[in-house]
Write a protein that binds this DNA or RNA. Structure first.
Lengths: 226, 226
DNA sequence: CTTGACACAGAACAGGCGTTCGAGTATCAT
DNA sequence: ATGATACTCGAACGCCTGTTCTGTGTCAAG
């Protein structure tokens, strides 16, 4: 009798299949499946086997279970549920330092502690793609961008910008990272602070200007004084 | 035998209570309650009565039900689902106008268009209660609070504040609404702008100062230039 | 070869849970 | 009065569902 064997390591095919089924079932029915439903759709004839896998998935931290409670399971962590977007917080942004740029690895594994959740309904435009990342502002150096110490800036990585977009740029001539509205003009670039009372930075075409990303959203949690 | 009667229209006290319980239970347990659990916590001794109310709530569109399925109910529309919080946007806030204050009615019925969704994981402290509201900033008058035109401020209604909290105040002497950090001092109040380069407003005790709410979060959607 | 872990099946148990039914009470318009 | 409507209760029915127990086949280590 044939038997697909998967000793030892990581997620087996069946684990993945169960995980996927829970996710798709949840999306479709708005509630988790029962053990028997999982069995049917994953070609597992016995409820005890499903329970067997569910236990493992729980131990591995992929799901949580409320024992004794019907359909009391849910996906945890990295799996995006519902209308949320999980954006990794890659580090801090401050005037004197280049900002961290995201690598593909960053989007693979990041813990819930290092990420922020955004409701997709809040996301402007069609930035709902997953290639977003976040940085926490350190210091008061971004006040001319109306951004405070501790604020969270959500960025979309890009090398070029259209006029009027707020971008994160690295000015190698000045050794400075800054957030400004970007305008390309005849003789160079104009970087306009968000604060209307402040004057823009004018750059000649010869000066280096590296666009690192485009600002999509700024979030300020005012909990530092509770 | 006394009997609270609620003929005809709208949500009765029990409807509301059930709705609230479902929401709080869901937040705590990550899954909906059973009919019997609702009964226990809402002082309803018979499952059929709970079912009776659930049917009505479904007809009124406040919940959805998957019949025959354990805990197969969920809140719809205005009620926050899962880890989201739906905050009503009651209006705009600008320097020359008093801010709209929330009434109970505002928390009952508001359309998804007039509200913003916040992931509870983003919410600071224990402001996860439902009595939050949001205002959209109009004009540049709040730049000294590091808040831009179009930003969304999320407030918790309150009349008094602790030192260091950012509050929305109405200065009737000056006919002005402003957002500042609040400090009570010996001879009066100090209202400190968030922008550290700006000077505070000093108020004598005699001057009127109406605290309208406490700032919990600021959200800036940078989509005006897409 | 024996042993033990691992993967799986099937059946049975027990409690959870939605549903339904019968019956009772209070308010109100007719 | 009378019936209609709204609301409540208690109990029973029966499926749903998680849990547990027994047994079987595979495979690698000793």
């Amino acid at each position: 009798m044939m038997m697909m064997v998967r000793k030892s390591k990581g997620l087996g095919e069946r684990h993945q299949r169960i995980l996927d089924f829970i996710a798709s079932y949840q999306r479709e029915h708005k509630h988790p499946p029962s053990i028997r439903e999982i069995g049917e759709h994953c070609d597992i004839s016995s409820t005890s086997v499903v329970n067997y896998y569910l236990d493992q998935l729980e131990k591995n931290g992929h799901i949580e279970r409320d024992r004794k409670i019907s359909r009391g399971m849910r996906l945890t962590g990295n799996t995006p549920l519902g209308d949320m977007l999980r954006v990794p917080v890659l580090g801090v942004i401050q005037a004197g330092e280049p900002i961290p740029v995201p690598s593909n690895a960053d989007f693979q594994s990041f813990t819930p502690e290092d990420s922020v959740e955004i409701a997709t309904s809040l996301m402007p435009g069609r930035e709902k793609g997953k290639e977003l990342f976040a940085l926490q502002v350190q210091g008061d150096s971004m006040i001319d961008a109306m951004i405070n110490d501790g604020d969270i800036v959500i960025l979309k990585p890009t090398q070029d910008a259209r006029n009027g977009e707020m971008v994160a740029v690295w000015l190698s001539d000045r050794n400075e990272t800054t957030l400004k509205y970007y305008y390309k003009e005849k003789d160079g670039y104009r970087l306009q602070p968000a604060n209307p009372t402040m004057k823009p930075i004018m750059l000649k075409k010869t000066e280096a200007l590296e666009i690192k990303g485009k600002v999509v959203m700024v979030i300020r949690k005012v909990d530092r004084y509770n």
